[in-house]
Amino acid sequence: MHYIYLLINIAVIFFPLVLSFDKKVHFFSKWKYIVPAILITGVVFLIWDLLFVKLDVWSFNPDYLIGVYLWGLPLEEMLFFLTVPYACVFIYECLNAYFPKNELQKYSLALSNLFLGLCIAILFFGFHHWYTLINFGFLFIVLAYVEYVNVKLRFMYKFYRAYLVALIPFYIVNGFLTAIPVVIYNNKENLNFRVGTIPFEDHFYLMSLLLMNVYLYEWFKSRAKN
């Protein structure tokens, strides 16, 4: 039982890691871009995580942890910020390699504006919940920067497609984490609306996590070309 969260992490990264040597995607050749992207993003989200533990936004069930903690966070939670981003960016690259034609290119700006508007609306009504406030505030800042400030990198149409596909393993993995539960949420600090057992905010937490990783990944690749 104590290995549940660790096994989930291993399951998340196992196939993306093995398939990284696929001849068409050649994801292993891009590790020099994905590793710094994951590490930088991981530091930001670990600080976020530590803050949420202090604020009692969420906690971790010791029955499903091996008992190794660093700076107050379980080792498995730290691995989460390595395994999940790696798997998601792998999905992003596979889709780009196997399905280069992407109709979302026509609608990506409209989608971004829709999500920015959603962030503003939810912040207006839910700002008194810590998870809601920080989650949607962070997503608004990152999304607005990527779409309207950093105009040289145009990848959001590819990002949205990868995000939609990543929701499939998200529902499986996060479903386990929240149903067992491995992660225990304080409903006073969120909107207390769930899709199954998954808090509504988690969908946009994934979006923020994936967007920051993909942006940095694309940024490191663009620098290497210059």
Score class of each variant (00 low, 15 high):
Ile34Tyr: 02
Val25Tyr: 05
Pro36Asn: 06
Leu6Met: 14
Pro36Ile: 06
Tyr33Ser: 11
Ile38Asp: 03
Leu7Val: 12
Ile34Glu: 06
Ile34Thr: 13
Ala37Trp: 01
Ile4Trp: 04
Val18Pro: 00
Ile38Cys: 07
Leu17Glu: 00
Ile38Phe: 02
Ala11Leu: 15
Lys23Leu: 02
Phe21Ser: 04
Ile34Asp: 03
Lys23Tyr: 03
Phe15Pro: 01
Ala11Lys: 08
Leu17Asn: 00
Val12Gly: 07
Phe27Ala: 07
Pro16Arg: 04
Asn9Ala: 08
Phe28Thr: 05
Asp22Glu: 15
Ile8Leu: 14
Leu19Arg: 08
Asp22His: 14
Leu19Thr: 08
Ala11Trp: 05
Lys30Ala: 03
Val12Ala: 13
Pro36Cys: 04
Ala37Pro: 04
Phe21Cys: 00
Phe15Cys: 12
Leu19Met: 11
Ile8Asp: 02
Leu17Arg: 00
Ala11Arg: 03
Phe27Glu: 03
Pro36Tyr: 08
Pro36Met: 08
Lys30Phe: 04
Ala37Gly: 04
Tyr33Thr: 09
Leu19Asp: 11
Asp22Val: 02
Leu19Gln: 10
Val25Trp: 05
Leu7Met: 13
Tyr33Arg: 08
Leu17Cys: 08
Phe21Met: 00
His2Ser: 14
Phe28Val: 12
Ile38Ser: 06
Lys30Arg: 14
Val12Glu: 09
Val12His: 06
Leu39Val: 14
Ile8Cys: 10
Tyr3Val: 13
Asp22Arg: 08
Ala37Glu: 05
Leu7Cys: 12
Val12Trp: 05
Val12Ile: 15
Val12Phe: 05
Ile38Leu: 06
Val18Phe: 08
Val18Asn: 00
Tyr5Ser: 04
Ile34Gln: 04
Lys32Met: 12
Ile8Gly: 01
Lys30Tyr: 05
Ile4Val: 15
Phe27Met: 12
Pro16Leu: 11
Phe15Asp: 06
Leu7His: 05
Phe28Leu: 09
Tyr5Leu: 02
Asp22Lys: 07
Asp22Pro: 05
Tyr3Trp: 15
Ile38Ala: 07
Tyr3Cys: 04
Val35Leu: 15
Pro16Gln: 01
Tyr33Gln: 06
Pro16Cys: 08
Ile10Pro: 01
Phe27Cys: 00
Ala11Tyr: 13
Tyr33Ala: 11
Phe15Gln: 10
Ala11Met: 12
Pro16Asn: 07
Leu6Gly: 02
Pro36Trp: 10
Lys23Gly: 02
Val12Leu: 10
Phe14Met: 14
Leu17Phe: 11
Trp31Ile: 14
